[in-house]
Structures are given as structure tokens and as C-alpha cells.
Computed example of a mutant assay.
Amino acid sequence: MQNNNEQSEHVYFVNQLYRDFLLPQILGDDTEAILYWAGKQIARKYDLASYEDINSFFTITEFGSLSKSKEKKATITFELSGQNVTDRLNSGSHEFSLEAGIIAEAIQKETGRTTECELAINDKKQIVQLTARLD
């Protein structure tokens, strides 16, 4: 029987295999756009319609720990961190478009305003900053 640490390593390996190796090989130059679109589809399928929904989903899928860092009238900034994020960044993966798409769709559902999400990598802090921009 696997302990929790072994299970977590297994989930990370599977995520890395699909997200950081296989999908970019298949999707090529369209990886970012397709994963962003896929994230929006995931948010619709699992009815993610709030920050709390996104946060729970990211925890279950082991995408990382999500926190709100700033909220203004037309933007909401989140920080994604944690061991899986650190491991992905250290392995050279800077592809977080799936997460950005999930956030964009869920915030759009929550606010009723057209929303797009941009991301920025902070290698020094080992975090991904995701900024939802609302129209």
C-alpha cells in the first residue's frame, strides 16, 4: 500500500508526463491556446463558479495552492504555489495555461463579466501569478 507521499509523487509524475511532456509533443505551437481553452471547458464541466470552487479543485488535482493576492475593480490577482509548482518550475515547465483558463471561466461565471487570465512566472519566489482581467 502506498503512503500519502508516494501517492502525491505518483500524481505529480502523471501530471508531468501528460502536461509537460506528452501534450506539448502532440499540440506543438498551439499548446498554450489549446490548454487555455481546455481549462475553460474543465471549469464548465465541473461547474467551477467561484474562487472557493477553483481553490478546492486545484487542491484535489494537486495543481498547487491558490491564494488571492490583490483584488481591484477590473482585476483579481492570484498566486499559485506549493511543491508541485516548484517541481514543475524546476523541471523547466512554465506552462500554466490550463490553470489560467480554469480561473478565467470560473471568475467569469462568478462575476457575469467577460474575463481573461494572464500569467507570469516568478522563478525566484517559485510562484505563478495569474491575473484575471474583467471587462
Rank of each mutant, 00 (worst) to 15 (best):
E105M: 08
H94K: 14
N5F: 09
G82K: 00
H94W: 07
L17F: 14
G64I: 02
V14Q: 11
Q108T: 03
N55R: 13
E52W: 06
T61W: 09
F58E: 08
Y36D: 03
D20P: 03
F96G: 00
S93W: 06
F13L: 15
R88A: 05
I34A: 08
E6N: 10
N90W: 00
T61D: 06
I54S: 01
E99N: 09
L23R: 13
L35S: 12
K109A: 14
T111R: 00
K109H: 10
I26M: 15
E52P: 05
A100W: 03
R88E: 03
I76T: 10
L80I: 01
N55Q: 14
G101P: 06
E95I: 11
E32H: 07
G82C: 00
G39H: 08
N15H: 14
T115D: 04
K45Q: 13
R44E: 13
F21I: 15
E9F: 03
I60V: 08
K45I: 05
Y36C: 02
K109Q: 12
S50K: 07
I54N: 01
E6Q: 14
N4D: 13
N90F: 00
Q7T: 07
L22Q: 06
I60Y: 10
S81F: 00
R113G: 05
D30V: 07
A74C: 09
A106K: 00
R113N: 06
G82A: 00
F58L: 12
H10S: 14
R19T: 14
Y51N: 11
L17I: 08
A100L: 04
A100I: 03
A100D: 03
F78H: 02
Y18I: 10
A104N: 04
K73G: 15
F57G: 07
W37Q: 15
